[in-house]
């Protein structure tokens, strides 16, 4: 795939072309001092690029918080079913995602495809183009480099844009979808050389990235977790946990969902919506029996699922180190801190 350069000042022009091409564009928007992904209709709506993170991840592009699985209609004793056509999913561009957003789609895709193919997710993802911007700053909650990512990591991106100190931005095109997006504004791009490890452009890209030394490795965590099921650490760490779903819902890799009914008399829809392993009712049987009866067992499930079960079963880690869960947690459950303490046990 090709690399291009574009002037910082032309990025808005490119975004305008993307909007004009009829794509649904989701981008960081700041309201009342808080920045989150929102649909936008003009580059002017996009938040200033001085944010580490949006509140929510980009997963909503392919895994919305609520979506129709199919609809039904009852007539007399008969039932007829109808399902959403993939064509009804809008061509979507996620503008200025972060590399950790893009990385999240690898574990998400693993969950949705490891056995049965979830073609609703797949159809949405096929219609989603991720334009990630390299991170020039990180905060106290970021730890992408500890889980295999990085502030300038291309994995999962359709395009990775890195703003260089020269006033130009390096545009690394990673997929056909990305190429199609660059092709919308041919006049704004000039071709750039491949970003080889020893090229000046690579050095320039590196110099533009946030510095974030790794604090532990995925392997460290996994090794420790293998022996940790009965550890008191789960109760210690989760005592203050309120059992809400904030961490799961802002997470780029949490994919647990519920299936619910939306009846309207003789017709209705079946809906898939986000759910969380932190909720007590997630696993509770009708009889009242609950395989994970305490918040400590649910917190353990969250960590083991992401860092032990998923790697073992799906060859994917359920965490991109984005830190969103820690920022969103009402009681400051800090994942980096908790993982570091597990890795040091």
């Amino acid at each position: 795939m090709k690399n291009y350069q574009i002037k910082h000042s032309d990025l808005d022009g490119w975004l305008e072309k993307i909007i004009a091409a009829g794509r649904r564009v989701i981008a960081p928007v700041t309201e009342e001092g808080h920045t989150d992904f929102r649909p936008i209709h003009s580059p002017a709506e996009v938040a200033a690029d001085d944010q580490v993170q949006t509140i929510q991840s980009a997963k909503q592009a392919a895994f919305p918080k609520a979506e129709t699985l199919f609809s039904y209609r009852k007539e007399g004793t008969a039932v007829s079913l109808d399902q959403p056509a993939p064509e009804s999913y809008l061509q979507t561009v996620v503008w200025r995602a972060r590399p950790c957003d893009a990385a999240g789609f690898t574990p998400l895709s693993a969950i949705f495809n490891w056995d049965y193919k979830d073609n609703l997710y797949n159809a949405r993802l096929a219609r989603t183009t991720l334009v990630a911007f390299s991170c020039q700053q990180a905060d106290a909650y970021c730890f992408c480099t500890s889980v295999g990512g990085g502030p300038g990591e291309k994995k999962g991106c359709d395009i990775l844009v890195t703003k260089l100190p020269s006033g130009k931005a390096l545009v690394e095109v990673c997929t056909e979808k990305g190429e199609a997006l660059a092709a919308l504004a041919p006049g704004l791009f000039s071709e750039a050389n491949a970003v080889a490890d020893d090229s000046p452009l690579f050095a320039e890209k590196q110099s533009a990235l946030a510095q974030l030394p790794a604090r532990f490795s995925k392997e460290d965590i996994r090794r420790h977790l293998a022996e940790a099921f009965d550890s008191p650490v789960w109760r210690e760490q989760s005592e203050r946990c309120l059992g809400c779903g904030a961490c799961a819902f802002v997470c780029p890799t949490c994919a647990c969902f519920d299936i619910q009914e939306d009846p309207h008399g003789s017709h209705g829809r079946r809906i898939r919506c986000w759910d969380s392993c932190a909720f007590a009712l997630f696993t509770q049987h009708t009889s009242g029996h609950n395989p994970r009866p305490s918040q400590a067992t649910r917190w353990r499930q969250r960590i083991l699922h992401k860092f032990s079960y998923m790697p073992e079963r799906l060859d994917a880690t359920g965490c991109t180190g984005c830190g969103r869960c820690s920022r969103a947690c009402p009681v400051d459950m800090n994942l980096l801190e908790h993982l570091t303490s597990i890795a040091q046990k």
Partner: peptide, 24 residues
């Protein structure tokens, strides 16, 4: 419209103590 139904509002409230909430 932005709410994601994470129920942090319920979880953080000392007076939302029902063992089975009406939403459930």
């Amino acid at each position: 419209s932005k709410c994601v139904k994470c129920y942090a509002c319920r979880a953080a409230c000392p007076l939302c103590y029902c063992t089975r909430c009406i939403v459930e």
